[in-house]
Design a protein around this nucleic acid. Structure first.
Lengths: 119, 119
DNA sequence: AGAAAAGGTTTATCACGATAAACCTGACTT
DNA sequence: AAGTCAGGTTTATCGTGATAAACCTTTTCT
């Protein structure tokens, strides 16, 4: 459960991996240098730390994610709702939708999902 | 915009203030000692930092919040949706609702809110 | 063979959020 | 007047996430 928590730098890094995986580690150091301004050793430090937590693996110089982007997103959402909205989706929506307008299409999509999630 | 970002300790602290405001500062140090285990100086440090950012004010030994809990909640929600879900509420919900069930009542409340937010 | 590049690890440094010790002033109390 | 307590500020310490310098081994290229 706790393993999905990513810090800011880790999240930016994983964003690159999710986009490009599987990716060669040397290639990854170049992308990180370009996109994040990181030195080679910084990238390898990140690889090692995240590998140790089971977030990704690095085998034969090939880096792949072990957790899906959606799992992390879901975890982050649950943390926010628990911490901030007492785990209530209606309270979250009431706050989030203040002064906001939805398009007709968005509204339809959402209502459909709500239907499907209702027992 | 950026001023609403609260770090973990700050958030816990503001939670107490939102609950008890207006509150005398000495009283507040006692509550923080009890609920958070903070020494007096820690509480005053927090007060000063948050006052400097316009989150609260301390006048005549009385502390009151200058931003409402809901403003911060809304800000946090928007940050999550932007950072994680490309600012799309449907994508957020699709992820969040995976494997979850809603009660009939929750579903009704949500649909009503969606209606109201649709132009 | 010798140089260069790939593919790393070890060990630090740095920034900053979290927490607090020590100190100060003024009002009230005995 | 001496002590106590309210109401703070100044200045540190500490933990840890973010970043990297220095070093090492193995493979590849000339």
């Amino acid at each position: 459960m706790e393993e999905f928590k990513l810090f800011d730098a880790e999240y930016k890094f994983m964003d690159i991996i999710w986009e490009l995986e599987p990716i060669n580690s040397t290639e990854l150091t170049k992308v990180c240098l370009k996109k994040l301004g990181w030195k080679k050793s910084t990238t390898y430090t990140m690889i090692r730390k995240l590998a140790g937590r089971g977030i990704l693996k690095n085998e034969n110089a090939t880096v792949v994610a072990l957790v899906k982007r959606e799992e992390v997103q879901k975890h982050d959402s649950e943390v926010l709702l628990k911490r901030t909205f007492n785990n209530s989706l209606p309270i979250f929506l009431a706050t989030f939708l203040q002064d906001k307008k939805l398009s007709k299409q968005e509204a339809e999509e959402i209502k459909k999902m709500i239907e499907e999630a209702t027992k």
